[in-house]
Nucleic acid binder design. Structure first.
Lengths: 203, 203
DNA sequence: TGTACATCAGTGAACGCGCGTTCACTGATGTAC
DNA sequence: TGTACATCAGTGAACGCGCGTTCACTGATGTAC
């Protein structure tokens, strides 16, 4: 109502806009740079600002990375939801979707692994990670239920299925001595088998 | 036969002995230090030599790490073989064995993940990695065959099963907000379910 | 047996690099009176 | 309307650290004649 309040709101929203700019820059880098090569100086360059400026908006590198991961996870969820609208959900579709998602976004796989393996993440970031995981696994639960898993045992079932597919991808995404197309084919075969096994298991 | 030849052999064997000393030092570190904290200076200190000396016996840090991993894999295989001698092989035993192995050796899990994810490994090291993986998966194949998988489709089946269990471990070995015992219990439950699903799938 | 030479294990110190993060400062904008 | 002051975005440069690896050198051992 008062001029002051409006100005403050404007400032706040501008601040958020700048924050988004930095995040967008980071996300853009993930599309074409290997995860290990993405540092604060790269993000700053991509955003057109100085590295020091980033710290006006984010407390640490990990905080940015976690927000990027969160965004990627939501993106993956949306993609999955769209894909599944067309027909009845099927574990194999889910599995193949995951394979393609990570084969196309190698840096995202590394990002996820980074947080899965890192020790000593600061509490705030860890909490966000937990939330993102839960958010995604909840969605996984829904699909499982639609695919015929009983409500009562769905949580552990979707944990197992999700981790299994992720395991396949981690182990075979960069198998040496094979072309990328061949690796993808092998992963699709493995995903198909695993999905079939889980489908059979729940009947 | 000639003195010279004998001396040379002696020298050679002493050289190999010193190499082993360095490797043993590295292995020992893995028992109680987080993977990320193990550097050349640490290995040297543990072995009682200078960092520079290591390079008389190994071309790079990765080369040492790969030999450590190789040793760990063989260790895991032996452990598994012993465990399975007692009764008929069972997918669940295998899965639970893997869970315990990696829960007790966190650094080994990180080491494996390091090589699974690292890009630009030098060819020699990569080749050794491939060999170690194959060696282990062959052993897995045997168990699978004994557990009732048909010879023809065993390779892909053991790939899928092994990666699935590894995936569980990677995702849940350090779940936040849980005690270690609780995490282990959750992993055991997941391993049990997954093994059951795969057992059912192959019948 | 004695002497000149080659080999090589071993090392302290430094190289070279890259990283996340902080500091000290500038300058623009808004506020108070 | 004008002036003194507060706030804060932005930054170039540096901090501080740690890493894998290499260099230049010493000293011990074995070899050749």
């Amino acid at each position: 109502m008062e001029t002051k309040s409006t100005f403050l709101k404007l400032k706040q929203s501008e601040r958020e806009y700048r924050r988004e700019l930095i995040l967008d820059a980071a996300v853009k880098l993930f599309a074409y740079k290997p995860f290990a090569a993405i540092g604060m100086r790269d993000i700053a360059r991509q955003a057109g600002i100085s590295p020091a400026s980033i710290y006006r908006y984010f407390p640490s590198r990990d905080a940015i990375l976690m927000e990027v991961l969160d965004q990627k996870i939501q993106e993956g969820k949306v993609r999955q939801a769209k894909q599944l609208q067309k027909r009845n959900p099927d574990l194999e579709d889910v599995a193949q979707g995951m394979v393609d998602f990570f084969m196309d976004k190698d840096s995202t796989l590394h990002l996820l692994a980074y947080f899965l393996l890192k020790e000593g993440i600061d509490p705030d970031t860890l909490h966000k990670f937990q939330e993102a995981k839960d958010y995604f696994l909840n969605h996984f639960d829904e699909i499982m239920v639609q695919a015929g898993v009983s409500q009562s045992g769905v949580r552990i079932f979707s944990h197992a299925f999700f981790s299994s597919i992720l395991g396949l991808i981690l182990v075979f995404h960069s198998q040496a001595g094979q072309e990328k197309a061949e690796r993808r084919r092998h992963l699709h075969r493995l995903a198909k088998l695993t999905a079939a096994v889980f489908s059979k298991g729940l009947r």
